[in-house]
Design a protein around this nucleic acid. Structure first.
Lengths: 220, 220
DNA sequence: AAAACTTTGTGATATAATGCTCATGTAATA
DNA sequence: TATTACATGAGCATTATATCACAAAGTTTT
């Protein structure tokens, strides 16, 4: 019985975690896995695992569990990972941009970095092996259309945000992973996820202060 | 009237955002800011801003707003940012580790990368300018104590997790920022934040699939 | 084939986060 | 000094998310 409800963002993130876990099971010859097993391994609640999956259909078999093979297929389909997703990096001249451009781990997961952009004329034209030359940010909209880029990874400094915000949002991409220290908002046509490293460090600092003052930590 | 409640993690993250925003106000000669101003600028709800701040005391003045100077002082104090926090990077030989080691933006925010570790003998001993040589992971517990390292940034590959998990958790640090594709859990003595880049990309991919099938995006 | 297990899927319940509303305090103005 | 306007802090309402608990469905054992 298909219950039509919008799954929370947290559920989507967990699906990705489930997929990684069962991918890691590959050689082990495990044919079936229960919500209990998954939950124990991933430090979650079994009911939550079941509910997460139930948003998308009835994948399990009562008294048995979930077929690993089928579950993997479903997760790949739900997350839209059957086809390679084309990614571009904006701010590719910076440290973080370069690191992500050269990181090979994404390809295994079906994400392909296929274009690099920057604003700085001193890095435009630099060749990154395996990907190509860093291009001017001005060419972004054209390249998005030409290459079929779907996701933009933003690794620009705070100072460049004003200049680049609209350019990115109107470039035609449908998704943005933003590392810049500024919260970008999702719109009808562009999904944005923000990763804010400073905020992560500062909230850890808060916990340090807490434990200095004698409080326990306990969360997440 | 001080209400004794534990502030949610989301509140702590927002405090960091508030601080960044009012730091950016520096030259503008703004003396006072209202919850409304803050909320509008940061795409939040004014009541939420007030509630976030009210967890920690009564900083505002009715009819006026919050003194920027005082608010900054309070936020710095709450987040424990008066003193420099010493950070070490584990997995400093990899792309991401190197990028973070060389990233200078953290110092402005009072975080100092002061040690680098790796498991790989081929990178141990490499000198990173301004920080020092990459050290063997085996020396981690000793160095944590010796240098007073409080935060560990983990940028190790999936394959190294098993080997390094306990070493990190027992090293004596009080906080971990984990980029490895594995969810580490906070304990009584160690606060952990996980940043999972693959999960971020995959959940964006989910939204791409959705919009391909005609659904709108709308979230965050 | 019945009984005893196992595990899913889901309604009901608990917990948490967010947003609304307003009494109260403050400042500016007449 | 009274009036008006404004903004906080807090209680309450609403929404979102997570957990519990159990009936229904499948498997294994006797």
């Amino acid at each position: 019985m298909a219950k039509k409800l919008v799954p929370p963002q947290a559920t989507i993130r967990r699906l990705s975690i489930y997929l990684r876990y069962i991918n890691g099971l590959d050689g082990d010859g495990v044919k079936v896995i229960s919500s209990h097993d998954l939950a124990r391994r991933l430090a979650l609640n079994p009911a939550q695992v079941r509910k997460d999956l139930a948003y998308f259909g009835e994948f399990g078999k009562r008294g048995v569990g979930y077929s690993v093979k089928k579950l993997r297929e479903h997760l790949v389909k739900i997350l839209g990972l059957q086809t390679m997703r084309k990614v571009a990096i904006v701010g590719a001249g910076g440290r973080l941009g370069t690191a992500l451009a050269l990181y090979t781990g994404f390809e295994k997961r079906n994400f392909k970095v296929c274009a690099l952009f920057d604003k700085d004329p001193t890095v435009i034209g630099n060749d990154v092996e395996g990907i190509g030359k860093i291009m001017s940010i001005d060419t972004l909209p054209g390249m998005v259309k030409e290459k079929g880029i779907e996701i933009l990874v933003l690794t620009i400094p705070a100072s460049a945000i004003k200049e680049i915000y609209d350019l990115v949002m109107l470039s035609g991409v449908k998704a943005v992973l933003n590392f810049a220290p500024f919260k970008m908002l999702s719109t009808e046509s562009v999904a944005v996820h923000n990763v804010d490293l400073t905020t992560e460090l500062e909230s850890l600092s808060y916990h340090l202060s807490l434990s200095e003052s004698g409080f326990p930590i306990l969360e997440e």
